[in-house]
Amino acid sequence: MSLPVIVTRAEPGASETMARLAAMDVTPIASPMLSLARLNVDLPDLSGVQHLVFTSANGVRFFTEASTLRAAKAWCVGPSTAAAAREGGFAAVYEGAGDAAALAADILVALPEGTEGVLHVANEAAAGDLVARLKEGGIPADFLALYETLPADELTPEAEAALAAGPACVLIHSAKAAAAFAWAAGGLDQAVIVAISEAAARPLQSREVAAIHIAEAPNEDALLATLAAVASGL
């Protein structure tokens, strides 16, 4: 793959993605569009928590740093999040297909109505939707924000240079990263966007780009497969 590939996700995920790209004989360009910061919050009483819901690997990382609770079942949105939960010491791990709405639906099917002790751990911007779906389905879930995501003001010089020289592929893992990228980037007429989902790509639809390609499933395996297919056709 001769095209440069710009990685926009936050660390430590950015380095993980770059390692996977290197294994594909790709030389990636790091330009994280988000940074993660721990919130100054006290943990609530977790003694009654039996089900932890994670919609990102970062949620798992921040939780395992803050708490020793591992007996609860970890409900994970996708493969990367499930891998982080297993690495973090959880024995009971459910691995979803990569979509938060689908994860909520899976939980509602698996757990009886009225099940208590369900806690969604994520960044502060994720409050509401998944928990609201669970509550509508009869599960009185709670939400805990342990970290926030902060947008970058600019791309790295290497990423700007690659976009100017073009064409260049841009990997998009989330809508928040896409929004930051759309705001911070200069000309994108030679940018080939490869996004993990339609929702993740949406903030870039207002920008003039060379093309937008969507992964067949909302996980990184599918994202990188789409990248390989796109690059082979350019």
Rank of each mutant, 00 (worst) to 15 (best):
A105P: 06
A85G: 07
G137S: 03
A92F: 11
D142A: 15
A84D: 08
D142S: 13
G117A: 03
L111A: 14
H120Y: 07
K73Q: 11
G89Y: 01
A105H: 09
E124S: 12
S56F: 00
E124C: 05
G48F: 03
G78S: 03
E65D: 12
P79I: 12
L119S: 05
E113R: 14
G114T: 08
F54R: 05
Y147E: 07
Y147V: 05
A101I: 07
A105I: 03
Y147P: 12
T64P: 02
G98R: 01
A105N: 11
V118Y: 12
A92N: 15
N58Y: 00
E148Y: 12
F143T: 03
P79L: 14
A82M: 03
A57R: 15
V60D: 00
G114S: 09
G78N: 02
L52I: 03
G88I: 10
S80Q: 12
A110F: 08
L103R: 02
T68E: 09
A83Y: 08
L111K: 11
A85I: 09
V118Q: 07
L134C: 12
G117C: 02
L146P: 11
A74F: 00
F63E: 02
A141F: 09
E124F: 04
V77D: 03
L130I: 08
A100Q: 04
D45V: 05
E148K: 14
R61C: 02
R70L: 07
A132H: 14
N58D: 04
A100G: 08
A91N: 15
A84L: 10
A132Q: 11
A141Q: 07
L134Q: 13
E136S: 11
A145D: 11
L52K: 00
A100E: 04
S67D: 01
G138F: 08
L119K: 01
A92W: 13
G88H: 04
A102R: 13
A105S: 11
L134A: 10
E95Q: 13
A83N: 14
S47C: 06
G114A: 06
D99H: 01
A126D: 12
A132Y: 13
F62V: 09
I107N: 13
L119H: 01
V131S: 05
A97F: 08
L103M: 02
A127M: 13
E148W: 06
A145G: 13
S47K: 07
A84N: 11
D99A: 04
R61Q: 09
S80G: 15
L130A: 05
F90E: 06
G48V: 05
K73C: 13
A145F: 09
A132L: 15
L144R: 01
A57L: 06
L108D: 07
Y147K: 06
A145E: 09
L108M: 05
A92T: 14
G48K: 06
P140W: 13
V118T: 12
R133E: 05
A72H: 01
A127R: 15
K135D: 12
D99F: 00
A83M: 15
K135F: 14
V131I: 09
L43T: 05
D106W: 00
